[in-house]
């Protein structure tokens, strides 16, 4: 441990890594044992996290016999694509899949317009009543009307079996609103002032100066909303009673429900359901899993932005 005193420590962006490098000169045996155990434990955490996904892929491509025998773990057994073809040829699956895409695009677009414009207005100190408006948004994070009043409202507005039932009640996520507001709060004032001296109105400043310079935060917010709407199912389950309106998450939910109710009856039905279920699940998570490595960092930065300064 004495050696470490001599090590120069430079403040870097990744202090943890720096701290690691300073001790590299000489370590106690105990710490080396810890490092090995730590690596093993973290590898296990990673594998356990991935296991359901690997199992899903394996089951989607396995034959039913092997699944029934419980012999499918992370590699497909009795490789085949017949179930795949079965699900792919179910027109309802694709109708519901298309619905999910449409709902996600429309809902995200509306949510972005409302969130961005409100966040910008709230970021302006000269806006009289700003505190009241921010407080009004924050209250909804702590307290909400509840399931039944919401249900009655949506019905009273005539939104049943329309896209508005799932788009409008969730059009602003207050957390996202705060993230955008804090971004606009820190937007360089001089740029906006210069633009308004050049004769731009508030609209001009907002659309032609602020928005083009906020692409990163806008992209992050689009991702937040898109994932939220892609994954949502309960609103649709609650307000839609026509199968061809369901998003794919409700299609899946109904598969799961069917599988659970047959589990007690006999195992054959379960096998078929389990196989089909895997394929449908795989196709539903595919867009997110494929995009995930590229968008992950935006999510992380979004969370930080929202928490460091709200």
């Amino acid at each position: 441990m004495v050696n470490e005193v001599l090590d120069p420590v430079s403040a870097g962006p990744d202090l943890a890594a720096v701290r690691g490098s300073t001790t590299r000169v000489k370590e106690t045996t105990g710490y080396r044992v810890f490092t090995v155990l730590n690596t093993v434990a973290l590898t296990l955490v990673g594998l356990l996290t991935l296991y359901p996904f690997l199992n899903l892929v394996a089951k989607a491509f396995s034959s039913q016999g092997y699944i029934a025998a419980g012999e499918v773990n992370i590699f497909p057994r009795g490789f085949n694509v017949t179930t795949f073809q079965g699900v792919v040829s179910d027109p309802m699956f694709w109708i519901n899949y298309k619905n999910t895409v449409v709902y996600t695009v429309v809902a995200t677009a509306i949510a972005m317009v409302l969130t961005t414009s409100f966040a910008y207005a709230l970021s302006k100190p000269q806006l009289k009543g700003r505190g009241l408006l921010v407080g009004m948004a924050l209250v909804t994070m702590l307290y909400a009307g509840g399931l039944i009043p919401n249900y009655l409202l949506v019905n009273a507005l005539g939104f049943k079996n329309t896209i508005w039932a799932i788009v409008l009640p969730n059009a602003i996520n207050v957390f996202n609103l705060l993230v955008m507001k804090s971004f606009f709060d820190n937007f360089p004032q001089e740029l906006e002032e210069a633009a308004s001296i050049d004769g731009l109105t508030t609209y001009g400043v907002f659309f032609r100066v602020v928005l083009p310079l906020s692409k990163a935060v806008i992209a992050t917010m689009i991702l937040f909303y898109a994932v939220q709407f892609w994954n949502s199912w309960f609103q649709a389950y609650l307000y839609f009673d026509q199968r061809d309106l369901y998003p794919v998450t409700v299609y899946l939910r109904n598969l799961l429900a069917a599988a659970t109710s047959t589990e007690s009856l006999g195992s054959d039905a379960v096998q078929i359901a389990s196989n089909v279920q895997s394929v449908a699940m795989l196709l539903t998570v595919l867009p997110i899993v494929c995009l995930y490595p590229f968008i992950q960092k935006y999510f992380v930065s979004g969370v930080m932005l929202g928490s460091v300064k709200g």
Binding site: V113, L114, F118, Y120, P149, L153, P169, A171
Partner: peptide, 25 residues
Amino acid sequence: DWRLYSLAVLPLLFFLIFKYVPMAG
């Protein structure tokens, strides 16, 4: 600041209708 307020009108309506009406409900 009417332009700034105009940006806040629709979001305000959203909160009133979809958050505060159910609270009253």
